[in-house]
Design a protein around this nucleic acid. Structure first.
Lengths: 135, 135
DNA sequence: CTTGACCCTCTAGTTGCTAGAAGGTCCATC
DNA sequence: GATGGACCTTCTAGCAACTAGAGGGTCAAG
């Protein structure tokens, strides 16, 4: 490897909580750019890949599909896009984000209530976790 | 159908943003209880199913795997479980929820910044969306 | 040199839906 | 009652998004 800052695929995986196979998958479908290779044909990753993959994993963990990941990445990859185009996309994502935050807050409240009920030594009288996230 | 409160699978799907095939899938894997059937062998769903399925869809939308959905549903299905057991599970889920909320807030801030930048008539100088969710 | 950890590509399996085929039911309209 | 379109049924297979195993190569410590 060229220097301390360059990582093998396994090291990149450990740094980002990602399996090597998943990293190769993302490269194949174009989410991650192809990295440089060593003389032994090993992939060699730098800080830019770490950042990009961390982002991808977190957005995925939040339940956004890869198609959405792509469009978010495009915001960073194509900084000169027309503002009207970007505006529409960003507002749509903002709406999704706000909806997820609201749902997580409600879920959090109910889980917190359950935790306190348990710690108070009370019987689990009633779990309203389903109602926290239903109509 | 027996009464106004009973829904066909298509109606349940519309009420919860779920495809009929997905509902059948959830029934097959035990996430949803088998519903009553009409004389014509149609599935017939009541309010309890609507609530449960809404919950499932929202938790899935937040990026939690079905295994986690199951364990959350178990909290509601088995109200008499030992508190020590419930406590550990709830705390674990609380931690996940908090992590997702924090990530969403950060993502929200950057998207908001982008939106304001566009509306202000400025050029898209720099998109830091990747950095918002990376190390 | 040896050995174990990890790399490579390729193929197939797992998880979680999603859609199509073939045939039956429901209900509004004529 | 007949018709037709929407929707239902079960079953099979495909898609999205990973995940793992097979067979063979590379790397580095001992």
């Amino acid at each position: 490897m060229e220097g301390k800052s360059e990582l093998t695929i396994g090291a990149l995986g450990k740094a980002t909580g990602t399996k090597p196979e998943t990293i190769r998958f993302y490269e194949q479908i174009g989410i991650l750019p192809e990295p440089a290779r060593t003389a032994g044909n090993y992939r060699s990753y730098g800080a830019e890949h770490v950042r990009r993959l961390s982002f991808v994993r977190r957005v995925r963990d939040l339940g956004f599909p890869l198609e959405t990941v792509r469009s978010m990445l495009a915001l960073a990859d194509q900084p000169d896009r027309p503002c009207g185009e970007v505006d529409a996309l960003v507002l749509q994502q903002l709406h999704e984000v706000d909806r997820k935050i609201a749902d997580l807050q409600r879920l959090r409240e109910e889980l917190d209530r359950l935790a306190h009920q348990c710690r108070g030594g009370h019987r689990m009288a009633e779990c309203r976790i389903i109602e926290a996230l239903s109509p």
